[in-house]
Design a protein around this nucleic acid. Structure first.
Length: 801
DNA sequence: TCCTCCCGCCAAGCA
DNA sequence: TGCTTGGCGGGAGGA
């Protein structure tokens, strides 16, 4: 059957050749000979497509055709082709990347289903595979060995394997995790890092000896292949080579991820641990290099399995390759008691649902006993500073807000303040319809747990890391700004001195009970911020960025399941206008009703509990807390100011992590900070007050001693025009504090969450005590030069690039 | 220059 | 003995 495409079947190359011989406008003559290839069938079409797609196949075909001497003409044509395309041919040779083990592994995996039917065993014949994939046998062994380590395949006989797919993977990972914990890989990793730091300052120290002794005591040398019951291990070389095999290395490598928190392992550390278990005395360079080579081999396969992802850890000594676990979470307990991983206090379950409390406490109280930060002193300083401000405000004639004494007194203690919100709200909502009031109350009081009760165990986590949230200073109580798109809430600490400038600018603001989830949000934020500062090297990653990232990338609870508070807000917003007017009127008439407060101040991104982790969220959900989320702002002084989500969309504080000792301001963050205020002020353009965000920023910077009292840090008008995208909460893209870079830098990236990982102190690019540079503005004020401000601390960054 | 890792030698071990 | 398996390190491509 002749198809119309037959002529088109002639390769473009041939057409080109022929056309070059003919007049430009003449129709190319039909080739005299039909190519000796297969008749034009779907199969041949497929072959041609494959050939076109694969240079390797193409060149093979070319070689095969070249060797075919049956057709002189064809040979001539090929010679011509070779002649014309000599360089092209060279270029068409597969590049290294096309021959990479990762790609090969992809091809290999594509041959088999992830979850094969148990009834139908698929067998792997190495000969077939090597033939079909056009690779050396040797390469297949590399892949198969790693797959074998995960019990995705098992060896049946010579040249023959069984494909299990991912059925065994959960079990295997559990087993590996358990073994990893038993082998105290966490301690080993920590020890290696400790040695590294010590080595920085004492390069001639007895590093190896110490390492040797430490490893010697860890009883690691006997570790062998971890088997699963029912999955028989029949390696070809069962004895001597078994313990050095790629299988075992692969398993150990995986263990390192499974026991680490966060699950990021640098190649260097992995290699050292693997070497350490073999022969520590051979900790020479060549051995190390070899291990690294093998780890790359393993990592390529694991990457193809989407179990890990390449990242980079940036340290003082430069960027280090590392890998991050992206595989399935490993839950500690399953039916299989034999494989049940022991829950240890030092190693929480490897899952997305690691308790943030745990994370937080780990971050707060690192077991190593190293002093990771000195937050307290500065916290106290800040508290005093804020107290002073409060005093000033209270005594100032232009005290911004009239607050009824009872209300005010109810505010100073932060948790209690929040506890008062429902009551405050109720009071404020008196003017509203009964329905609305009921809704509000329902939102606020949907659960007795909604009223925050400071738990002893959580109290330190709440007050310590937040720092800027002193419990006894209501004037800077946080306004919590949810950011529905980023999934990160922002706590606004309102400078009291600004409140008066905006008390009349409250049109349209409604009162909303403070979602108690926000209290949790603060906690989550604490955990997040804190872990960024306190935890060690790349290993902080998991606990901090994973939940946020995963949620940012995928489902966001608040978008997926609209919270009751959101519904409340929507309902409230839908209230008849007379209610709004009534409310507004009420606001204007009586400033002692704490209803008009301007969301201005410095913003601190908060991680929602729902973002923090699922476990916590689920536990909170039981108490009805998680359902209350981010549609309202609490007024720092008197109550809560809700804001429509549309307003929130303009809020973007991508990299604004503030703690008493840590401020990282990316250009974007400085730029973005005013956006909120502007958006809020749009309707009140008569304001002659300074840009609240700018002022707030100044206030904050002055408070934390970054700038002297007279210095102003204006909101950069240029940067304000920077479009604020919904994804720009990702601080990685342009900030100097970019921490995460994908493995494929050129590829368009999905939004990534910051993965700032901070060690015991921050790294300072410009020296150990680089101060933020101040430059004079035309108006005589000074501004902080754009870029990241580094507090003299050492910082470690993780990048996925 | 360093990172990454392909490539293939060659030895161990098996049928 | 031939074949399979896989440790190992040189060195090339790429960043």
């Amino acid at each position: 059957l002749k198809t119309p495409l037959k002529q088109a079947a002639t390769s473009q190359l041939v057409l080109t050749e022929r056309q070059s011989d003919c007049q430009p406008l003449t129709t190319p003559p039909k080739p005299k000979e039909t190519p000796p290839a297969d008749p034009w069938t779907p199969t041949s079409n497929l072959k041609m497509l494959i050939s076109a797609a694969s240079p390797e196949i193409r060149s093979r075909e070319q070689r095969r055709q070249l060797s075919d001497s049956s057709s002189e003409v064809l040979q001539t044509k090929h010679c011509l082709r070779e002649h014309i395309l000599g360089d092209e041919y060279e270029k068409s040779q597969p590049s290294r990347k096309e021959k990479s083990l990762g790609l090969l592994c992809h091809k290999f995996l594509a041959r088999y289903p992830d979850y094969p039917s148990p009834s139908q065993k698929s067998y792997i014949c190495l000969d077939e595979v090597t033939e079909e994939l056009h690779v050396e046998r040797r390469r297949i062994y590399d892949i198969v060995n790693v797959l074998e380590s995960l019990h995705m395949v098992s060896r049946l006989a010579r040249n023959r394997y069984v494909w299990h797919g991912r059925h065994n993977l959960p079990q295997t990972l559990q087993a590996l995790k358990k073994v990893g914990e038993e082998n105290k890989y966490i301690q080993q990793i920590q020890m290696i890092k400790k040695r590294e730091y010590e080595h920085e300052f004492d390069p001639d120290g007895e590093r190896n000896e110490e390492m040797a002794s430490s490893f010697g005591s860890s009883e690691q040398s006997e570790m062998s292949f971890v088997e699963l019951p029912g999955v028989e291990f029949r390696a070809a070389s069962v004895n001597g080579r078994k313990y050095k095999s790629l299988r075992v290395m692969s398993q150990k490598f995986v263990m390192l991820f499974l026991v680490s928190t966060p699950q990021i392992v640098s190649l260097e550390v992995a290699a050292k641990i693997l070497i350490g278990e073999d022969q520590l005395e051979d900790l020479d360079k060549s051995k190390f290099k070899t291990k690294i080579r093998r780890l790359y081999d393993i990592a390529n396969v694991l990457s193809s399995l989407k179990l890990i992802k390449k990242v980079h850890v940036t340290e003082e000594r430069g960027r280090k390759p590392a890998f991050k676990w992206t595989g399935p979470e490993v839950l500690p307990n399953t039916q299989d008691t034999k494989l049940e991983a022991t829950s240890t206090t030092c190693s929480p379950p490897i899952s997305e649902s690691i308790s943030s409390k745990e994370q937080c406490s780990k971050a707060l109280f690192p077991s190593k006993g190293k002093q990771n930060f000195t937050r307290h002193s500065s916290l106290i300083k800040l508290v005093k500073s804020i107290e002073n401000d409060r005093r000033k405000i209270q005594s100032a004639p232009t005290s911004p807000v009239k607050i009824s004494a009872s209300t005010y007194q109810s505010l100073p203690v932060f948790p209690n303040t929040i506890a008062q919100f429902p009551a405050i709200t109720k009071h404020q909502l008196e003017g509203q319809s009964k329905t609305a009031e009921e809704m509000q109350m329902k939102c606020a009081l949907s659960s007795p747990e909604a009223v925050p009760k400071p738990e002893p165990s959580q109290q330190p986590a709440l007050s310590q890391p937040l720092g800027v949230c002193p419990s006894s200073h209501s004037s800077v109580s946080p306004v919590i700004l949810p950011h529905p798109q980023s999934g990160v809430s922002y706590a606004i600490y309102l400078h009291p001195s600004q409140a008066h400038t905006v008390t009349t600018y409250s049109p349209g603001f409604m009162l909303q009970p403070l979602p108690c989830a926000n209290v949790t949000g603060i906690k989550s934020n604490n955990a997040k911020v804190l872990s960024k500062i306190t935890t060690e090297e790349g290993d902080t990653q998991r606990g901090t960025e994973e939940p946020t990232k995963s949620l940012a990338a995928e489902e966001r609870p608040e978008t997926k399941s609209e919270t009751s508070s959101q519904r409340c807000l929507k309902r409230s917003q839908a209230l008849p206008e007379n209610n709004l007017i009534k409310r507004r009127k009420s606001d204007e008439e009586s400033l002692d009703t704490p209803s008009t407060f301007f969301p201005s101040g410095y913003l601190i991104p908060l991680t929602h509990c729902t973002h923090g982790n699922k476990a916590e969220c689920s536990s909170k959900e039981k108490a009805g807390v998680c359902s209350l989320q981010h549609t309202a702002y609490s007024s720092p002084i008197t109550g809560v100011i809700p804001m429509p989500a549309s307003e929130l969309k303009t809020v973007n504080i991508p990299a604004f992590h503030i703690t008493p000792l840590n401020i990282m301001l990316s250009p974007n963050s400085i730029a973005a900070a005013p956006v909120l205020s502007n958006s809020c002020l749009n309707s009140s353009s008569t304001s002659s007050a300074p840009n609240p965000s700018s002022s707030a920023l100044n206030f904050m910077l002055q408070h934390i001693g970054l700038i002297p009292a007279g210095v102003q840090v204006p909101a950069n008008p240029v940067l304000q025009h920077v479009p604020v995208s919904s994804q720009s909460e990702n601080i990685g893209h342009s900030s100097g504090s970019t921490n995460v870079q994908e493995g494929k830098p050129s590829a368009p990236k999905e939004p990534q969450e910051p993965q700032a990982v901070t060690e015991n102190f921050f790294r300072t690019p410009g020296g150990p005590n680089t101060e933020p540079s101040l430059s004079a503005n035309s108006d005589g004020t000074q501004r902080i030069s754009q870029g990241t401000l580094y507090i003299p601390q050492r910082k470690l960054e993780v990048s996925e690039n």
